[in-house]
Design a protein around this nucleic acid. Sequence first.
DNA 1: TGGGCGGTT
DNA 2: AACCGCC
Length: 425
Amino acid sequence: MIGIVDCNSFYVSCERLFRPDLNDRPVGVLSNNDGCVIALSNELKALGITMGTPAHFLRDQVMHEGVTLFSSNYELYGDISQRVQAVLEEFSAGIDPYSIDECWVDFSGFSADQLEQHAHELRRRVKQYTGIPVSIGVAPTRTLAKVANRAAKKNASYEGVCVLYPNSPRAVELLQHFDLGDIWGIGRRLDEKLRQLGINTAWDLRRQNAKELRRRFSVTLERTVLELQETPAIEMMGMDFARERIMTSRSFGQLTEDKSEVRGAIRQHAQRSAEKLRKQGSLCRAVLVFLRTNPHRHDLDQYNPSQIIELDHATDDSRDIVAASMRVLERIYTTGFQYKKAGVMLMDIGDRSVEQLSLLDSARSDIERARSGRLMGVMDELNEKMGRNTVRLGSAATGAAWQLRCANRSPRFTTRWDEIPMAKL
DNA sequence: TGGGCGGTT
DNA sequence: AACCGCC
């Protein structure tokens, strides 16, 4: 049996750890750039607000209905996430982190009654040690564990834990009332197409022929059906493999046509991309830079250029990647447009140990490579220890228009000494 | 009216 | 190079 542990309204729960006064209040957390609501407390949901609502729709509620909105504070959420994972790891047979607020947990080897008890114990420990409330779904497959998790969350009588044993009446009952679009892996598009075939619930989908659906749709849908039928078909342990493309992009806090500001943003995104590249032990051979104007502003001219540049050798050196990005930017940047977003994508990615053996790379000496590796290693270590962007290439450019809007970000309580909470006794 | 993938045209 | 789908 496999379990999925999902933190309830995770970002909101993180904020509430340090603001217990908000425990029964409507609270939301905004996306990067304070764009839209991406995490909602139950009290905020009860006001009819949904995920993705633009923040400015909520201005009145913030003023008059006691709604509290936070800018997102990923440094805090990332740290709390690691603490939750540490607890899960300590009290289980094995874990496999899935996202910042979800984690697969190995539940194999328990008898039926032990299993339910163990899940409740796990939930209690996480709450005790981190303060974060979680819901746990357990089932023979990942897709069914996700179904169980949703039930655990929606139905208070489960008290945060729902176990679906193979062939159980509870599973049948649940699937019969489970909306197609809420199944893990069924998006809006697929939901629509399947409904045209008269498939409306998880139970309907479970009764389909998996091979037939593979032929008509895709191998991923076949896997989903198999998993609903209690046959494991989705492996996750290998989910952590190296990315084939690595992108870093951000919207600007406000539109800008200042070239030096766009340059600053690209320089930062190039360095962040290079960091991610080194983290997964890869080298890249091509860099893509793109710019975007605001597609919602029909009154402004649109321009969404992107261009790729091939590097003369595979690299993970931030200096190479920044230099290449700057060359591309020079080629695509055009004055007279109001830019909304910029990004850097690394492509043609391969494993470091393989790439370095390539004859094409013989132009670079071993000494050169060793120096680069040491320098990048020191930069990564300092940035990891002291906070992102402590050491960087080029100037700081703080206060530029392109920097993120985050008007209501809480302190990074657990990762910055100068933002640590103070207690008055 | 977000970001980061993978994929297709 | 531009666009789409999904989470």
